[in-house]
């Protein structure tokens, strides 16, 4: 009975104390990680005027959809959510497809430019022109105040290139050989054979790209801040944060101001902030647990080989 002997081994008093301490420690970590989101959730579903009273922790006191209704009736935020979603979907598809294609070419041992392309790509990981030259380039290319500045400068990610390349190199050679014997060219082999087999790596990379697209606000701030139609959810949330930082000492005045402004619907900066925080993190909360086994693997491959 191996199991019972293992149990007996772990049943000494110090072991039990250790286990219980460890479980309590883990529960603390879980609470510290989740509490802020639960609190924001409670605030976002609670009546805004009731929230001013304070004392709201885990669950809404006076349930309401008003905060969400208010936000989605605000044309600018509604539009910003749309732009965020569009750049996430389009940016991820374009970047992952292009990076995978380049990764396939540099994984082909017979390709004569293989080393050249690899070195050209890897060099850029260590040297970047930096903020100002990058900004001037975008300006010269007339991409300021355009949606494409979210997509085109991110077409290739060299880190992702390495992750996908290592994965393709780990595929059995025979598969691609037999495709070639059947007369398939490189592009067909890539589309029909390599892409479907690379799904685990593509899932990891897609998650990274999608998360960074959804989360980015700095490019909006830098290139499109004067163009409200190109604003994103994160940038709108960032503007709220900046306002509340400068008005940190006079929160209540701000609350009353917003309440007076919006009249009947009565929302406050605090409840708007909580609601937007939930909207901005909800897609991520819903997606990442399902991709966990992929990104854990992708991280360790990228970490070791990168």
């Amino acid at each position: 009975m191996k199991e019972s002997s293992a149990k007996a081994r772990y049943n000494s008093v110090p072991d039990k104390v250790f286990d219980i301490t460890n479980i309590v420690f883990m529960l603390c970590i879980v609470i510290v990680t989740l509490y802020p989101f639960i609190n924001m959730f409670a605030l976002s579903f609670n009546d805004a005027n009731d929230s001013i009273r304070g004392g709201l922790y885990f669950w809404p006191r006076v349930w309401t959809w008003d905060n969400y209704n208010y936000i989605f009736n605000e044309a600018s935020i509604y539009h910003a959510t749309f732009i965020s979603a569009l750049r996430t979907i389009l940016g991820t598809v374009v970047s992952v497809f292009c990076t995978a294609m380049l990764a396939y070419t540099v994984s082909r041992q017979e390709y004569v430019l293989r080393k050249f392309v690899t070195i050209v790509a890897i060099f850029t990981m260590y040297f970047s022109g930096g903020l100002i030259p990058g900004y001037l380039l975008i300006k010269e290319l007339h991409m300021i105040n355009s949606f494409w500045v979210y997509i085109i400068p991110g077409i290739i990610s060299v880190f992702n290139l390495i992750v996908i390349r290592s994965f393709i190199e780990g595929l059995p050679d025979g598969i691609m050989e037999s495709a070639k014997i059947d007369g398939a060219g490189d592009f067909i082999t890539f589309m029909r054979i390599v892409l479907p087999l690379t799904v685990p790596a593509l899932a990891t990379v897609s998650l990274f790209v999608a998360v960074s697209q959804w989360n980015s606000w700095f490019d909006v701030f830098l290139y499109n801040s004067s163009h409200i139609n190109l604003s994103t959810l994160q940038y709108e949330l960032m503007k709220i944060l900046q306002t509340s930082n400068t008005a940190a000492s006079s929160t209540n005045v701000g609350d009353q101001f917003a309440a007076g402004q919006s009249g009947v619907t009565a929302v406050t900066p605090t409840s708007i902030r909580a609601t937007m925080t939930i909207i901005a993190s909800l897609p991520i909360i819903m997606v990442y647990p399902f991709l966990q086994k992929y990104f854990v693997k992708g991280m360790t491959v990228g970490g070791v080989k990168g």
Binding site: T33, F37, N215, M238, L241, T277
Partner: peptide, 11 residues
């Protein structure tokens, strides 16, 4: 424990 890594710095 992975959750906060994925949310933005803005959030």
């Amino acid at each position: 424990s992975y959750l906060p890594h994925f949310i933005s710095w803005v959030v």
